[in-house]
């Protein structure tokens, strides 16, 4: 009996550590440089995703916009928020780039063509990035201490089930979508 209790204690202890403590240890929370409101840009600024994140004519994807393009509208503070002030005084005026932590940032060896997915396959941004484009604030960014990658690549929970768009961006997520749509890219289609 006492052996059984000891066994269960051990079991419970390592389960608790594995499912609760370990994720706390594994991920490191990092602040975003600015509280960015996607929603307000879409609603009040009547902008689209491609207004800032555009695919160029030669197929290159610009990714995160540079401060210069923020400055096009935000040369002067457009509101009274703290973030607005920081943006103009600390970044736009001195022409400094913002060090955004990119949730969907993939490792160097991954090649993702926005041109192919957006222009050719006509996919919506939300299909991979979820509702990030309509969020009112920058959600916290977590970095995996072992791999250095964003937590969004694996997904928010340890077990990878029931992932919503934008939560899981591992190779298997790409693969399952490709399989569903019956398009094979081979290894080098998505790697470099």
């Amino acid at each position: 009996m006492r052996v059984l209790i000891a066994f269960l204690l051990g079991l419970a202890g390592s389960l608790a550590f594995g499912w609760w403590g370990f994720p706390q240890l594994l991920y490191q929370r990092e602040p975003q440089p600015l509280q960015y409101n996607h929603k307000i840009h879409i609603e009040k600024g009547s902008m689209e995703c491609s207004s800032c994140h555009e695919v160029a004519a030669d197929g290159q994807f610009a990714g995160i916009p540079r401060t210069a393009s923020c400055g096009a509208c935000h040369a002067e503070p457009l509101g009274k928020t703290e973030a607005e002030k920081i943006l103009v005084t600390s970044y736009v005026a001195p022409e400094r780039e913002l060090d955004w932590k990119v949730y969907s940032r993939q490792p160097m060896n991954v090649r993702f063509s926005h041109a192919v997915h957006v222009n050719k396959a006509a996919m919506k941004c939300e299909e991979c990035h979820g509702g990030r484009g309509s969020a009112t604030a920058a959600e916290p960014f977590y970095r995996n201490r072992v791999t250095g990658e964003s937590r969004n690549v694996w997904g928010p929970r340890m077990i990878r089930v029931g992932l919503k768009p934008g939560e899981g961006m591992k190779m298997s997520d790409c693969e399952s979508c490709h399989e569903q749509k019956g398009v094979s890219a081979g290894c080098l289609g998505c790697h470099r």
Binding site: V3, G13, T147, I159
Partner: peptide, 27 residues
């Protein structure tokens, strides 16, 4: 015997937790 039991439980629990598998992948 209790120590062995505890160790056994911890080992089984560890295998059922994400720790080894996630670390394998992350490493």
């Amino acid at each position: 015997r209790e120590l062995l039991g505890l160790a056994g439980g911890a080992a089984v629990g560890g295998a059922l937790s994400p720790v080894p598998w996630k670390l394998l992948d992350d490493s």
